[in-house]
Design a protein around this nucleic acid. Sequence first.
DNA 1: GGGATTTCTCAGACCGCTCTCAGACGAGAT
DNA 2: ATCTCGTCTGAGAGCGGTCTGAGAAATCCC
Lengths: 239, 239
Amino acid sequence: MNVQVLPPRGGAEPVATVLVVDDEAAITELVGMALRYEGFAVTLAATGREAIRVAQEIRVDLVVLDVMLPDLTGLEVCQRLRAWRDVPVVFLTARDATADKITGLTLGGDDYVTKPFSVDELIARIRAVLRRSGRLGTDSTVRYADLVLDEDAYEVTRHGIRIELTPTEFKLLRYLAHNAGRVLSKAQILDHVWQYDFGGNDNVVEAYISYLRKKVDRFSPPLIHTVRGVGYSLRLPRR
Amino acid sequence: MNVQVLPPRGGAEPVATVLVVDDEAAITELVGMALRYEGFAVTLAATGREAIRVAQEIRVDLVVLDVMLPDLTGLEVCQRLRAWRDVPVVFLTARDATADKITGLTLGGDDYVTKPFSVDELIARIRAVLRRSGRLGTDSTVRYADLVLDEDAYEVTRHGIRIELTPTEFKLLRYLAHNAGRVLSKAQILDHVWQYDFGGNDNVVEAYISYLRKKVDRFSPPLIHTVRGVGYSLRLPRR
DNA sequence: GGGATTTCTCAGACCGCTCTCAGACGAGAT
DNA sequence: ATCTCGTCTGAGAGCGGTCTGAGAAATCCC
């Protein structure tokens, strides 16, 4: 029935160990909470030196690294880590970062995400980097019924027919697909899919659900269902 | 799961330990009483600091946390608790919300409920969060005779046939099902199923029982029974 | 810089849901 | 049988959640 792994991955061993480095506790909290829920083991650090110390003590599969830290720059931390052991990195950068600061960040299979980011987007990037580095399975697709969503190629098909989505539509559908069968409230969707500083109201979720329906549920059977007073759910129709 | 367990769960050990934090004694009293009745062990706190102190002294499985406390915000309390030990949280927020749009409340598998809430709704959310965090069985269904009620999917079936219910009908049936075999007065039902500030009269319960009968007791045998002068009961017919 | 695309807001329409009222119904008492 | 009181239920008003088109604002991309 449920295609995807829905429960928060019980007692089994973690998917991977992630070190989250940022001087803002709000950010490390946010990211740590979401990663733990997704089954990752998480360690937090507030400074570059602390990050390096931690990375030498425990095995880390990936580092989420703010480029602006109080003591060292993200690139310096990255270099010192790499001198010790090769570990993939996802950088966090300010939105207005100039191009020259960003170049070089994505070398070697790394990636970067600009603040303020959407939590789910960050996790998707983390997964993608882990896949590229061979630390996770290589399948980048999510499937539900005849819907196929390729997270690396940003492509969606139904019945094998290509569906063109805008970035936000894609993120919303990805979140729904990852939680297929589960009812998701508008607040939940806003928390995961939209940037963490989004201040608007949840009508925007209704609007995007409407857009998605026009594109994705043009085919039958409809997969996007409203549960009035509760939220939305991606699933096959029941009877 | 325990559904037919009717008495307020005798001497056995508690289902889980819940810390309820709110500066309004009326709220902590209300919630505490309901939780104890459901077999939870309950501790109350009126301030953020007190909550943190308590959580460090005793093992707590879940925290019910008002986002507006006199000393700290709910998020701050949450952050400090998490630094100490990972514990799931159900937040209480004001509905009118003077733009207290707090995001991220649902990120780590946590949830929130807006005031004024219905007591049973809050308890259902608490159960759901405990289930997701693996601190309770993972079965989200309640069963009685051929009636199955899935609290996560918001779905009800009888004989495996889907029954469409409105939100209030669903909550009422959930309350009846959790107390199957027991006679519940209209006042009791109003107190648990409706928001605690509901000002109307009992007739609304009669009306909803009537709706439920049309949908649920369309099948035989009838499960919803009137005990004249006392209340209602969900059970198999006698003799 | 300017055009195209995307995001977000707003407002209106729609319609399902909630709750009330009032009268019908029925059980139990006398 | 009749009365009384509690319960049931149809009708309907009002509310509120959801959907969607239109357009403003932001962003992207060449």
